[in-house]
């Protein structure tokens, strides 16, 4: 069982945001990501019927994998995916339900079928990147991003995976604003990291998570801090905490995060 984990890369993607660090979010608008734009960024076709959460998550995943050492086929088999999102497919679900209520099921689009299932995001990432380890879609409310870190460590400890690609993604659009409470400014984007056990970490320059005592809580990145910087990020909040900690680590200012009752210093 490992007490130290390494983050090989950590990336934030928000459509048309200038810069790629957490403080940039405050100055950025929530811009809709068109599938053609995503197609250009990802250099692939076949994205027309993906929902926006999936598109943003795919871009973040590509950036994370591109900034880490490349994976062999065997390593891809041992790479798990955990996606955390609460609002990911809300727009597809409501659009379809409203079409049925106002007209008939025959008026719906068969191409929306994959998105009616909440795990279309994590599934799409596995297909596009050929990652065949355990694939988990976590929709666990406000704590979902923190839980994703815990479950990622669990998958490594149980040897179900050598490494885990963790992505937090949320969407903010008119449908969400109208039908999701509370009505607050929301984070619109995707963020994630690649976590490995330090004993097998494949890069020399990595950010490490050291398990610590509650005493390190004075440097804890709190939910409130993330809300101030990123708006209400719901299922992505816990993942954004790791990104912020990585940014501090690059300035040699270690901060810590907590997942459940455990504390992790990130340096």
């Amino acid at each position: 069982m490992s007490n130290t984990y390494s983050i090989l890369s950590c990336e934030l993607y928000k459509p048309e945001m200038a810069g790629n660090e957490i403080p940039c979010i405050a100055e950025a608008e929530n811009v809709h990501l068109h599938y053609k734009t995503a197609s250009k960024l990802l250099g692939r076709k076949g994205l027309r019927y993906k929902d926006e959460a999936t598109l943003m998550a795919l871009v973040a995943a590509q950036q994370i994998l591109a900034s880490a050492p490349s994976l062999s086929d065997a390593q891809k088999d041992a790479t798990a995916i955990i996606v955390s999102s609460n609002l990911g497919n809300v727009d597809t679900v409501l659009k379809t339900a409203q079409t049925i209520a106002q007209e008939h099921v025959d008026a719906t689009s068969a191409m929306d079928l994959p998105n009616a299932s909440s795990n279309s995001i994590s599934a799409s990432i596995s297909i596009v990147n050929q990652l065949r380890g355990p694939n988990l879609m976590l929709c666990n409310g406000q704590s979902s991003g923190d839980d994703a870190l815990q479950l990622a460590m669990d998958l490594i400890d149980t040897q179900r995976a050598e490494r885990v690609l963790v992505i937090g993604v949320e969407v903010s659009n008119d449908v969400i604003a109208q039908y999701i409470a509370p009505s607050v400014p929301r984070f619109h984007g995707a963020c994630g990291y690649l976590l490995e056990s330090s004993t097998v970490a494949r890069a020399e320059q990595v950010v490490k998570l050291h398990q610590g005592e509650q005493a390190i809580a004075e440097n804890l990145i709190t939910d409130e801090e993330i809300k101030t910087l990123c708006n209400d990020a719901s299922g992505a909040a816990g993942v954004l905490k790791i990104k912020l900690a990585c940014e501090y680590a690059s300035k040699r200012e270690p901060r810590s995060v907590s997942a459940h009752s455990q504390y992790w210093q990130i340096s």
Binding site: V93, A116, N140
Partner: peptide
């Protein structure tokens, strides 16, 4: 769960009522 409380979201939206995020899990 495959579909969480997405049926609650559908029923509420058709009545023009919002659903709390916390009621989806």
């Amino acid at each position: 769960t495959g579909l969480r409380e997405l049926r609650t979201l559908e029923v509420s939206a058709l009545q023009n009522e919002p659903t709390d995020v916390a009621d989806l899990d």
